[in-house]
């Protein structure tokens, strides 16, 4: 370590190699993924998130839902991802190309949400999601600040969250979702990874459908 500039240069080189290898390397491999055009249904997959849902992803991120929820289904053999009905296939990089900010998460205190909208037999309804977020449950934090309790002026809003029991507002008032809650729920109702890409099949398909399908 006698040579002063050489030491600093060595440090710099070590870190540059690692950063370039991993970050630019994966960018080279995945950065140009395009949607997959399916001849059978004449559509591209994944679809872009509608505007409202795209804004909802930012709400999901800034509330830190990822502290308890993952959005990545692993392939069969990894845990009970399939058995729990979180998705029929593993998540692949192409699923996220339109996510402004993928929320893969690292902890599963709650269920995986990658394919919430595609759940079988039935995805949760907007109504149920609003109720979960407003009241919470024994296992789920509540997010009451995403809702507004207000006097019913004239006719009751059709948007009001239907509540019973202790959570119900006083007579004459109603609980309505703020814009943030609406975008969040719109997002949750759009996270769907139902389409099966060639690269998501357990074994490689005979003829690679697109150059990026190698993986």
């Amino acid at each position: 370590m006698k040579n002063r500039p050489l030491f600093l240069f060595g440090l710099f080189l070590a870190v540059l190699t690692s950063w370039a290898g991993f970050v630019l390397g994966s960018h080279g491999q995945l950065g140009s993924l395009t949607p997959f055009f399916d001849e059978a249904d004449g559509q591209s997959h994944p679809a872009r998130l509608p505007g409202l849902a795209a804004r909802g992803q930012a709400v999901y991120a800034d509330l830190g839902c990822a502290a308890c929820h993952t959005q990545q289904v692993r392939r069969p053999g990894f845990g009970s991802d399939q058995a729990r009905g979180w998705g029929e296939r593993q998540s692949v990089a192409r699923d996220y190309i339109f996510h402004a900010q993928p929320q893969l998460g690292a902890s599963r205190l709650g269920p995986d949400l990658m394919n919430l909208a595609g759940r079988k037999p039935q995805a949760p309804s907007a109504e149920e999601l609003h109720r979960l977020l407003y009241t919470g449950s024994a296992a789920h934090p509540a997010f009451p600040f995403l809702y507004e309790t207000r006097e019913i002026a004239g006719e009751a809003s059709r948007q009001a969250v239907r509540l019973t029991g202790a959570a119900a507002p006083k007579a004459g008032s109603e609980v309505v979702a703020t814009e943030r809650a609406q975008t969040l729920v719109a997002y949750l109702l759009n996270v769907n990874s139902g389409f099966e890409y060639p690269e998501a099949r357990p074994l490689p398909a005979q003829s690679p459908a697109s150059p990026e399908a190698k993986k």
Binding site: S18, W19, P102
Partner: peptide, 18 residues
């Protein structure tokens, strides 16, 4: 100038580790 999709996750995890 955000990278696309999961490459962001790679970059963010690389940073958190470093």
């Amino acid at each position: 100038s955000p990278l696309r999709g999961v490459v962001q996750t790679v970059a963010a995890s690389w940073h958190a580790q470093s």
